[in-house]
Design a protein around this nucleic acid. Structure first.
Length: 915
RNA sequence: GCCGGGAUGGCGAAAUUGGUAGACGCGACGGACUCAAAAUCCGUUGUCCGCAAGGACGUGGGGGUUCGAGUCCCCCUCCCGGUACCA
């Protein structure tokens, strides 16, 4: 028996699989297809644990499907445009293309070390002209169908990055990548009309996606039912407002416009003009961040103008305030302070009228001066003319009687219409950046724009450019100057596309990455589409996954799939419903965090103040013992400047005032409380925290099979969790044990039929368990079941009484079931026994008759507490079960000579005797 | 604040969806092998009481439903993710 040497085995098999083309996937209409997709990585430089965690289980499942007889496509590529490459260019004077392709080369070889069944012939790289030619082509189709349009809009401008960001990329008024503030700026930009698909994007009927993702997308789209109501200014201009509560119109006592609203100028009276423009300037200067950091106190100014409430002719003052956003609804609201908390606060702030129009259910009528907050509960409409007495419920839209009545009234009287509003805004795809797909548009001398002809695509990024801060496209003359369709001088569009554009269609390019006359080959697409299962991180819940869905729906409407549908029909496949959604099934993995650590060992000097200690000095010293300070112990928890310290026999609360000194020898410079490490402080892995676990080193030391097995075993996949470097040894022992079982010469001393039957039973139970768990993404329990089979095989080897055929079936089943998880070691062991690859073996099938247990342990309870256990045949009847239970000595003891009041029997599981 | 998800041994986690709580693994402890250590093998390992047989307690906290609750219902606490003046 030779020793398990993971390095030689893994290298050898990776090379041989590649040479044999084991993982090439070809269209074969005689076999069912399975398109498994895992999110493509950004080529940042090195593959990290997160990639392994996401990809290797996805690979394992694809392998199971393959062994189950499916023709499986499992491709890989790189999402290669983006800002980091450009930053590298500026900082290190290396061309973005060079930086990107070098990273791709390194990551490709790291990906190969996983031993995954990626079909590298189908690799697609989004920054290849071969690829972005078709990104441009898709943009052009969008342009032709008016889905892509040019519009002026308040945009999120990042002064740091010198570019515009999508709403999805702005978190808390800061850029999600750099954390730098973002300001509002009016600019002409390219948009995709994703809002046109809002309604369709809310439907998830035919796809199997996690509920949280569906909820997040639904919230992001933010559908609101209500009405648009037209108010008229005294100058005769119309102000349209959107409201979800048209029934409260009779309580509208003023209006508020967004500071940027176009009607502000004409509304503003002369004496208010200075105050209004001052307020508008101040609002424009503010970043979103500043708006949020401000106290929630409402600000605003009166324009001096008035409008007329169309339901009752009331004259209402028009204000401007920054709590009304130009980009949502119509940029103007009717304010109903009695029944909207924001309006209420505003009205109190500026002494505006508050008129209640809902009489709360079961309470006294609202009296304005006594109100301390708005009333948003149910009741009956009052002071509301035609809808007085109508019930107002908590239901939204027409489901609420008062809203339905009001909408009918508005429509009948021409004052408004039923309307639906979305929080979702059109997708801003312009980026003032170099390293992205060019937008194939030229600007004519006459100010018009036109698309670059298809046969001139792609508009190629010029290579020989210099990088500073701004995009070189804006100044590089050879790129800038071109001619339009009439041969006149024209300039190129210098914006490039958001990289989410590239990743919104990449799974189509995988089908035929070299196709020269279409984004994808209809013959390939007709067979492989749609994607059957998609795996990746939940952080893409609203951006990538929403854009991807939008793209497929838009492509469908632009008839990009016409040839594919024709090809499907030619092959007898029904295309109905196959081009509505990109990914039929979606599953998200969690995140692997940095390793847990113990808290700092602290020495604290200071004074006791009742229960707590107020520190004068805090020092980290691992060697300190009791008596070295007032409080000595491990830091368990820190909340702001409050520490919870475990001294070994007590928990002490310590307050660390700003004046206290903090000394952490490992961290240079002046230290503060925030730098103290507390117990169980787990964080995302990052270079700056120094808690990155490098998969390359683990693969070198333990082997890819062990790393794969451990990642699948140690976590609940959807959840993730902190890395534990101690646990990996368990996976390694398991792989080594499999090696020993697979290489040992088994020769029983004697054969015991009962032991043989028992082992076979366990084998078939394991098949059923692993099969179910692997399809259901429960890798941890699948591996646990295989470990249990390992334990049984070791036992069988020790006792040496099972029949050789049973032993062989057990070992070979273990190899086949483990092959998707640990593809190298199982291949080596299998090929020592057989000529073919283990990876093309049929997936084992559980025989229920073999797996069935004959005897089980029945639980005997008295008053619901377990008092005895007895082995019974599974077929035991209720009567037999009860008589066995009552005959039990232990049960008798609790009966104490008396009668059972009641006996509940669930044979053969349990009998509960109630006394 | 609102919307999701969660809390089970020293640790990662299981639990056929109302029926033996803690499978599987890590760690720890004891033993074997060894001059010794590592590796490996065997055993123990929820807590408490008990020499033992056994008993009591135990799935974040409090109540409830049930013969029986980690699982269902109500209330509360804490943690994670998303989102936030959306009219």
């Amino acid at each position: 028996m030779d020793k398990y040497d993971h390095q030689s085995i893994e290298h050898a098999w990776q090379e041989r699989w590649e040479a044999e083309g084991l993982y090439r996937s070809r269209v074969d209409w005689n076999r069912p297809k399975h398109y498994a997709l895992t999110m493509l990585p950004y080529p940042s430089g090195d593959l990290h644990m997160g990639h392994w965690y996401a990809m290797t289980p996805s690979d394992a499942r694809a392998r199971v499907m393959r062994m189950k007889g499916y023709n499986v496509l499992f491709p890989m590529g790189f999402d290669a445009f983006g800002l980091p490459a450009e930053n590298a260019a500026v900082q290190r004077n290396i061309h973005p293309a060079k930086w990107t392709y070098e990273n791709i080369d390194r990551m490709r070889s790291q990906l190969r070390s996983m031993g995954a069944m990626f079909d590298w012939e189908r690799e697609a790289v989004s920054c290849d002209p071969d690829y972005y030619r078709w990104t441009e082509w898709l943009f052009k189709r969008m342009f032709e169908h008016d889905i892509a349009y040019r519009g002026e809009a308040m945009v999120n401008w990042s002064p740091t990055l010198q570019t515009v960001l999508a709403n999805e990329q702005v978190i808390d008024g800061k850029d999600e990548r750099t954390g730098q503030p973002v300001v509002q700026k009016l600019m002409e930009q390219w948009f995709f009309a994703i809002t046109r698909y809002a309604e369709e994007l809310l439907r998830f009927d035919d796809i199997d996606w996690p509920e949280p993702i569906k909820t997040m997308q639904t919230n992001w789209i933010g559908r609101s039912e209500g009405a648009e109501v037209t108010f008229r200014t005294e100058a005769g201009d119309e102000i349209v407002v959107f409201t979800t509560r048209p029934d409260t119109l009779w309580g509208a006592t003023f209006m508020v416009l967004a500071p940027e609203h176009p009607l502000v100028d004409s509304l503003t009276s002369e004496e208010k003009s200075a105050a209004v423009s001052a307020y508008r300037e101040q609002a424009a200067r503010q970043t979103e961040l500043e708006r949020m950091e401000e106290s929630r106190e409402k600000t605003g100014v009166f324009t001096g103008g008035y409008a007329v409430n169309p339901v009752n002719g009331a004259r209402v003052p028009v204000w401007i305030a920054d709590y009304v956003l130009l980009s949502y609804g119509t940029g103007a609201i009717m304010a109903v302070p009695a029944h909207d908390q924001r309006d209420f606060e505003f009205a109190r702030q500026f002494g505006l009228d508050i008129v209640p129009v809902i009489h709360p259910t079961g309470e006294a009528p609202l009296v304005e001066p006594d109100m301390t907050e708005s009333y948003v509960g149910p009741g009956v409409m009052v002071n509301s003319g035609p809808i007085d007495g109508v019930e107002a419920t908590l239901a939204k839209g027409r489901a609420n009687p008062s809203i339905a009545a009001t909408i009918d009234w508005l429509e009948h009287n021409g004052a408004g219409t039923e309307s639906i509003n979305y929080r979702l805004r059109d997708w801003l795809i312009s980026r003032q950046r170099y390293w992205g797909s060019p937008i194939p548009i030229v600007h004519r001398a006459d100010g018009g724009i036109e698309a670059v002809p298809d046969d001139e695509l792609p508009v190629v990024l010029p290579e020989d450019v210099a990088f500073s801060g701004r995009s070189p496209l804006t100044t590089f003359e050879p790129f800038l100057h071109t001619t339009d369709s009439a041969g006149q001088a024209a300039t190129r569009e210098t914006d490039t596309m958001d990289t989410f554009m590239c990743s919104s269609w990449y799974w189509f390019r995988y089908l035929s990455p070299h196709a020269a006359d279409a984004p994808f080959d209809p013959e390939e697409a007709a067979y492989w589409l749609p994607v059957d299962v998609y795996t990746g991180g939940a952080e893409h819940a609203v951006m990538h996954l929403l854009y991807a869905r939008f793209f497929v729906k838009a492509m469908r409407d632009m008839e990009v799939f016409a040839d594919t549908i024709a090809a499907m029909r030619a092959h007898g496949r029904d295309p109905e419903g196959l081009f509505e959604e990109p990914f039929l099934m979606l599953r998200n993995q969690g995140q692997i965090l940095g390793e847990e650590r113990t808290g700092d060992h602290l020495v604290i000097d200071g004074e006791r103040d009742g229960e707590r200690v107020v520190a004068s000095g805090v020092r980290v010293d691992p060697d300190a013992g009791p008596g070295d300070g007032l409080v000595v112990g491990e830091l368990l928890r820190r909340t702001e400047n409050l520490l919870l310290v475990d001294t070994g026999d007590d928990m002490v609360n310590v307050e660390v005032p700003e004046t206290a000194s903090v000394d952490i020898p490992d961290i240079a410079g002046v230290n503060d409380v925030n730098q103290l490490k507390h117990h169980l402080d787990v964080q995302r892995m990052s270079k700056s925290r120094g808690n990155v676990v490098n998969p390359d080193e683990l693969v070198e030391r333990f082997g890819a099979d062990t790393v794969r097995t451990y990642l699948m075993f140690a976590f609940e996949w959807q959840k993730g969790g902190p890395w534990d470097s101690r646990g990996i040894i368990g996976a390694r022992r398991f792989i080594e044990d499999v090696w020993k079982l697979g290489t040992v010469a088994y020769a029983p001393d004697a054969v015991d039929d009962e032991a043989s039957v028992a082992l076979r039973r366990r084998v078939h139970q394991t098949i059923a368990k692993v099969d179910e768990d692997m399809l259901d993404f429960k890798w941890n329990t699948a591996v646990a079941a295989l470990m249990t089979l390992r334990n049984d095989l070791q036992e069988a080897q020790r006792t040496a009484v099972v029949a050789p055929a049973v032993w062989t079936e057990a070992v070979e089943t273990l190899l086949k079931l483990l092959a998707p998880i640990a593809p190298h070691v199982t291949e080596e062991l299998w090929r020592r026994r057989h000529d073919e690859s283990v990876h093309v073996q049929p997936w084992p099938q559980a025989d229920p008759d073999v797996a069935r247990e004959e005897w089980v342990t029945m639980i005997l309870q008295v008053n619901g507490k377990v008092r005895d256990r007895v082995d019974v045949p599974v077929s035991i009847s209720e009567e037999e079960a009860i008589s066995i239970a009552l005959a039990s000595e232990r049960v008798q003891g609790f009966l104490d000579g008396g009668e059972a009041r009641k006996v509940i029997a669930r044979p053969p599981k349990i009998v509960n005797v109630v006394v």
